[in-house]
Write a protein that binds this DNA or RNA. Sequence first.
DNA 1: CGTGTCGTTGATCCTCGTCAAACGTTGTGG
DNA 2: CCACAACGTTTGACGAGGATCAACGACACG
Lengths: 225, 225
Amino acid sequence: MDCINSHDTVFKHLTKEQREMLNEQKSCKSYKKGSEIYQEGSRTNGLYCINEGIVKIYKTGIDGREQIIYFAKSGDIIGYRSILSGELACSSAKTIQDSTLCFIPGDMLISLIKNNGDFALDVLQQSCKELGEANSYITDIAQKTVRERLAEVLIKLKENFDIDENNELQISLTREELANIVGTATESVIRLLSEFKQDQLIDLKGRKIRLINIKKLEKISNAFG
Amino acid sequence: MDCINSHDTVFKHLTKEQREMLNEQKSCKSYKKGSEIYQEGSRTNGLYCINEGIVKIYKTGIDGREQIIYFAKSGDIIGYRSILSGELACSSAKTIQDSTLCFIPGDMLISLIKNNGDFALDVLQQSCKELGEANSYITDIAQKTVRERLAEVLIKLKENFDIDENNELQISLTREELANIVGTATESVIRLLSEFKQDQLIDLKGRKIRLINIKKLEKISNAFG
DNA sequence: CGTGTCGTTGATCCTCGTCAAACGTTGTGG
DNA sequence: CCACAACGTTTGACGAGGATCAACGACACG
């Protein structure tokens, strides 16, 4: 995907000139699976748009345990928060697949926001959406059981990432990563996945997870309304 | 506080004309303690700036249990997220003291963002800061114990709200509200507060909480670095 | 003086985190 | 190419943290 020229990204309202300027200033790069893009606590002086691949955004907590906040995929932008809030990065970013990312300098971002109101609104929309999701996440973790949250995570992975014709999630995560999304121990994830499998809700083949009974999973995840 | 003319709010970079326009369009109102400002799931067609008082921002989860996301105080703006993300409100807002709030129509907000790049940046800064805090919150709830989180909440209340010369928190919260910030049961908060009192970390007089040993509380809360 | 809300305490139960051990898989270097 | 290390997955056993339920006291308010 060519983020900057796509009509599906935050850059959709740029003028032709702005696009050209951006194309000049950006620098794209390939990253192997597992590469650090930026680190919590560092000063990021630009943002990245994801051309291809998946990047996990996470914080490091107690004992260095990861808490995964979300996954960014093709067309998403990451790393912009710290520039705009004027704080240090509050999270780290690491590729979980081979990926291609474009770097855009921070002053370019600021200048675009100042000079293009529609772009400013699009960036605001992006950050406000993330904020809404974060708020839901807080409530979920605070109130739902691990079982409910795991079911929810599976549903969300299905909604946000590719799935093949058999409802098999194409995103490949370790059990530990799943645990770090849900906010629980690796062993708990393993046990619950086995349960789900026994209950014919999912099927497991190594890291491949196939969703069989989505309705039931939603019911488990839901607890709300 | 006169939010719109203060140099300490998101409105600091408005032009004189914009201030005047805003002052015409805004409508200020007093609210009794416990008044609903807006409700989760509703369409807010404007934002509120808080002139005086404290507003709790919360989501309603399982069994209608509240999860308090944060408290907004004098000078803060609330309700802008839903306008900018184009979604329904993801949280509810209710005053916990008698308060005065000014309402500013949504199209006014949009027009200011489009026409004043510095204002757009200030709003972005606001939303990005909230986003950073939300991310920390997620990690905390997922990884810390209730004890650690309660200590942390006490510290944060001290930092964000008035405190008298005796380190007594001036914000008055019910035990249930405290529990709904920490994300636990009311009984757990009560038990832990008693423990903290026994350990000479705090003193309790009804809803008044006086912090005695802040260093120790920080140590308990911390767990991180 | 009842009624409702809030705070407190005790008893009990269960979810989930932790520790330990075993096994499969992947990767690396000699 | 094999040996070994390092890592990921799985299962079992155990215990602690914290949720839930129940009962009662404190207090304000009409």
